[in-house]
Design a protein around this nucleic acid. Structure first.
Lengths: 149, 149
DNA sequence: TGATGAATTGTTACTGAATAGCTTCTGCCC
DNA sequence: GGGCAGAAGCTATTCAGTAACAATTCATCA
């Protein structure tokens, strides 16, 4: 999936939503799209400063808030990092597999898993509004590299 | 479950493990035991300072690291808070239901849920080493209060 | 008892994460 | 062009977490 294609899809969604895909927001979006895996807000800020020298933490966090609202990115809670979602046409909860070796993140969308969590919560009378399901470990490709060495 | 009972159980486990349940560690343990729900490291630090004026962030984080190693506490990743676990006799992954109204945290231990997540990961060739499963929302008792008002 | 080595704690300093509050600018609608 | 709302600038601050090194405590073994 090319970056340009992602950008134009995002731009289109913003138009539909009546939201403004401003220059800064687009830049942050592109930086995220360039990143393999998650990236921290301050690293993102450093990169943004190369074209927006005046950028400050608030600049990044406002952009990240916007991108989150539009459903373009996920936050990785267990590592305080942000991740571009490549199928943002509909908001969806995701489960993340985060490789601690290569930083790659695999995004899952298992309905049974969510439903089971939902069911357990309901049993306790708990109303879920937001869920975080993440695993850290080692991805397939890193495991293979390890086996071959 | 009384605090004293928790403390003595913790002390016993430390003895068995050959770990030292020092004064600072016990104080942090007690502060966590006094807390309803999760608590942030710096709030914990403020409380600890009342009896340990020299305490610094490192003091708290070292104690928290120790208590985590012993399996006495969980970290709530989605709110950067720490929570005493009341059944720490065996290390176990937990799922947390965090009420955003009253701050209460319900701890679940669903084996099916973990296994399903495990299975999904395996399908992708991913080896899970640590998992975070949390939900934010509203607990039963807060929902009832709401209904009655 | 006294030496010693490891674990614990003290101390200073720093980086990274996130938000608050207020000002300025920009785009849009009338 | 005037006024309004949303976006971005700016300053400052709080919270979260770690690094590095010095000082201390403690169990143990000679």
């Amino acid at each position: 999936m090319s970056i340009e294609s992602l950008v134009s899809r995002a731009r289109h969604i913003c138009e539909v939503n009546g939201a403004r895909f401003t220059s800064i927001r687009e830049k942050v979006f592109r930086l995220l799209a360039d990143t393999h895996g998650g990236i921290g807000a301050y690293e993102l800020l450093d990169q943004l400063k190369q074209t927006e020298p005046a950028a400050k933490p608030a600049t990044i966090y406002r952009a990240l808030d916007f991108l989150t609202e539009q459903g373009f990115i996920h936050k990785i809670e267990s590592s305080n990092a942000f991740l571009l979602c490549h199928h943002f046409e509909e908001h969806h909860p995701a489960q993340l597999l985060i490789c601690d070796r290569c930083n790659h993140v695999e995004e899952l969308h298992s309905t049974p898993l969510q439903q089971e969590f939902q069911r357990l919560a309901s049993e306790k009378g708990f109303l879920i509004q937001r869920q975080t399901i993440e695993a850290h470990g080692i991805c397939q490709s890193c495991l293979k590299k390890e086996a071959n060495s």
